[in-house]
């Protein structure tokens, strides 16, 4: 990736404590995002995308624990105090949620929400500066200045989401985590928002982690894509290359089962994502993988790098030296029952 990454995550583990044991929602994840870069994070429901997004910002519930490194501009956020994290959130680290209505204070005018946000982090601003900065950011999102003094319920869903984005951007964070920012929106409005997100890097130079389960959105708005399965990133690389030639069987199957305008016949991945308290041994995808080999359930796969900036977590791509003799033989197996699905 590019020169000096804004965010570097190394061997991050984020586990939830539950009555039945630890849920390994994120289990050894590493990634990097450079300034002005957009990384798309995709995967099925429950693969740990939101946990990773929140974990990076230190927003995990009680009972969850983290381990590893989240380096933001060289500082490790794992283990940072609540106070320090709070100070960073906003001016440095921004977050956009899926449901904008629940995040905007319904009793406050848009103007006051901007004022509060700005004053909290940049106390020296004058009223005129606050207004200028807010209107400028809102204008870029297509929200007219005439509506600056209205309440959240007076806006439509798409406008609220744009206001949310503006509210996150008005502090000019260097890193923005957007968790399914368009899932609740209509296609045309979604496309409008995607345009805005794609323009972020030109306008603000923001590093963006875009979480979604829609591969189309990644293809549209991201430079890089990371595919997540059962708490791990199984493949990562430039979006264009990964989509053109997926290396990991899961990425390939996921692409095949996505229904698009070009779909001629339906395809699906057998089985369901595993529970993350006792994930499958070896490669977590082995119970569903069409290419399973003898080594897969026995040994944790080792990450391999290809073509400079692609990496894969799958025995099909080596390293050969680590595969025991005979490990490369395929395993035949009976069909998985239809109903064992997500």
């Amino acid at each position: 990736m590019s020169a000096e990454p804004v965010l570097t995550v190394r061997d991050l583990r984020l586990w939830y404590g539950t009555p039945r044991g630890s849920v390994r929602a994120v289990d050894g994840v590493s990634l990097e995002i450079g300034a002005g870069q957009t990384l798309g994070l995709v995967g099925e429901s429950g693969s740990g995308k939101s946990t990773l997004g929140r974990g990076i910002l230190g927003l995990l519930p009680e009972g969850a624990k983290s381990d590893g490194e989240v380096l933001y501009k060289g500082r490790n956020l794992v283990g940072a105090s609540h106070r320090e994290l709070r100070r960073l959130r906003g001016p440095e680290l921004g977050l956009i949620f899926q449901e904008p209505m629940t995040r905007l204070d319904p009793l406050m005018r848009i103007e006051d929400q901007f004022r509060e946000t700005l004053e909290q982090h940049e106390s020296k601003l004058t009223d005129a500066e606050i207004r200028r900065r807010s209107l400028d950011t809102l204008g870029r999102m297509g929200i007219p200045p005439t509506r600056f003094r209205q309440y959240p319920h007076e806006f439509s869903g798409g406008m609220r989401q744009r206001i949310m984005i503006a509210l996150a951007l008005v502090l000019r964070p260097s890193l923005l985590v957007a968790d399914e920012p368009t899932t609740a929106l209509d296609v045309i409005v979604e496309a409008q928002i995607l345009r805005i997100l794609a323009d972020l890097k030109e306008n603000f130079g923001t590093a963006l982690l875009l979480i979604t389960h829609n591969l189309g959105i990644v293809a549209e708005a991201c430079d890089h894509v990371a595919v997540m399965y059962a708490g791990q990133i199984v493949e990562e690389g430039p979006a264009r290359d990964v989509f053109a030639e997926p290396k990991h069987p899961y990425t390939r199957e996921l692409l095949r089962s996505t229904i698009s305008l070009d779909t001629r016949e339906l395809h699906s991945i057998p089985g369901a994502p595993p529970n993350l308290i006792t994930p499958p041994t070896g490669c977590h995808f082995h119970p569903r993988c069409p290419d399973i080999m003898r080594v897969c359930p026995a040994k944790d796969p080792i990450e391999t790098r290809h073509d400079g900036d692609r990496r894969v977590l799958c025995w099909l791509h080596g390293p050969e030296s680590e595969i025991p003799p005979g490990g490369g033989e395929p395993i035949e197996r009976e069909r998985i029952a239809v109903a064992e699905e997500a």
């Binding site: 583990r13 586990w15 404590g17 539950t18 009555p19 630890s22 009972g63 624990k65």
Partner: peptide, 10 residues
């Protein structure tokens, strides 16, 4: 409910 504490070293 009683949760089982996370133990990374388990």
């Amino acid at each position: 409910r009683a949760i089982r504490q996370v133990d990374f070293d388990a």
